[in-house]
Design a protein around this nucleic acid. Structure first.
Lengths: 252, 252
DNA sequence: CCGATTTTGTTCTCACGTTCACAAGCTCCT
DNA sequence: AGGAGCTTGTGAACGTGAGAACAAAATCGG
């Protein structure tokens, strides 16, 4: 994440817009919690209520909100609708963002159908794939179009967000094309590290990494006491003789 | 993440297993990078090479690896196969983990088909759904089974990892059932905050949150100079009069 | 065998994030 | 009007993570 903001040492004056990244990542959670409260007909909520709904500690929540401004009322709490709007505006989901999905395999398919994807604020404008066999297929009310149309679509529909759901192989090339076409935010599902120029934000969602993190902790649980012992380093120049095959890669 | 480990103040003696969470999250990335290098026929790599492949800085990579032990050779670098095995063992992917997927909608479908999911180390043992219309459907070489069979399957196949791909509504209930059945690690795709007892690890993958984070940064880019001004707080008891509808929720 | 060179493992420092604890401020009741 | 009772917003302490820099160890050439 390349998000350097010139920040002088003094206390973080709230007006100079510098919201910590950790806080930014939680704002959507708060937004969802507020929406849920609102749907339940609750008009006012304390930081404690909100924190519970969002699954965080209330002090953290208050500090996070304090970066946006002073939207609560002491002794009372927060007005749910008002705070919801403020957070939505801060995040930027009061406006519409055009999104393209590249790579209509299993996952791309699922995302295209995923009604939840269309959270207000995001609009899928195109499903792209380079495979001619897929082009033309209808998914919901959309049709898969040729990846070659990318540049045209990005320009026409002012696309700023691209989602990559291709296999690992073509992902970097797709990414480069997206960037060259003018996309400045990318959500990558392909199991590769993509490199992008400064000014382009990239986020990664990686199934197998998540599973592996879980596995790590799981391993500690079962073998809390007796862990598989670390074999000694081989004599001098450690060439491993014959180790079991293990993979960290994914060939979607 | 509830992973409190009794740790006394002294220097973190490597032998007492306490790998920082941030490092754990990167180990799978290193593992993948090593696999890629190995596939390219590269037998030895320096921290610089590895760091580049993994998309991190080399000092960080060396420090991360130092938590596992001293597996490099000064002046030379790391033996790719050997290091790969050590990391795989540390993570726990040298053994097989049984996984159940609950909720065979669009996303569950995709995951079931997703060959990449079957990274060595993880084995999908069952696809479950409570909808009778889905039960019996074949996906790949598996058949969707009734959610009621959960407990039986978990016990029989020693399932320790559960993946929730249901809509938000039933997610907490599914989660509770998984935990009660003995599952101790959960990967949640449903857009809700799940609560689990201590000892159960849970990780979240959330599409719309990722998009919203991108949107936040995107907004700063376009309007770098003139941001939409924050409206003043309403008079005393801030009841928002009529704000545009915004959503943070997802109704998959 | 020794010195030059390379690259790891580690120490130190700084920045960031979390949590506690409390003063400031608002409401409501008497 | 005044005080009791809440709840926010924030200052300060603490813990974790990142990066620079360097000493320790290994190889290689002479």
């Amino acid at each position: 994440m390349t998000r350097a903001s010139s920040r002088r040492p003094g206390p973080p004056t709230r007006t100079e817009r510098g919201i910590p990244e950790a806080t930014v990542a939680r704002l959507p959670v708060y937004l969802r919690a507020l929406t849920a409260l609102s749907d339940s007909g609750i008009a006012t909520a304390s930081s404690e209520d909100l924190a519970t709904a969002a699954g965080v500690n209330s002090a953290k929540l208050r500090k996070d909100l304090s970066y946006l401004g002073s939207y609560g009322t002491r002794g009372v709490g927060y007005d749910v609708e008002y705070l919801r709007y403020q957070i939505a505006r801060e995040i930027g989901v009061t406006q519409d963002w055009a999104v393209v999905i590249v790579g209509i395999g299993n996952l791309g398919h699922a995302l295209a159908n995923y009604s939840g994807f269309g959270t207000r604020g995001f609009r899928i404008v195109a499903l792209l794939d380079a495979d001619p066999a897929l082009v033309g297929e209808r998914i919901g009310d959309m049709e898969v179009r040729d990846f070659a149309e990318l540049e045209h679509i990005v320009e026409t529909d002012r696309v700023s967000i691209g989602v990559i759901t291709t296999p690992a192989g073509p992902a970097q090339e797709v990414c480069d094309r997206l960037v060259a076409a003018g996309v400045t935010s990318i959500l990558n599902f392909a199991p590769v590290v993509l490199s992008v120029p400064d000014g382009v934000d990239i986020r990664k969602v990686d199934l197998s990494i998540e599973l592996q993190i879980l596995a790590y902790h799981e391993q500690r649980k079962s073998g809390e006491v007796a862990l598989p012992q670390v074999p000694e380093l081989p004599a001098t120049n450690g060439l491993a003789p014959d180790l079991p095959a293990v993979g960290g890669g994914v060939s979607a």
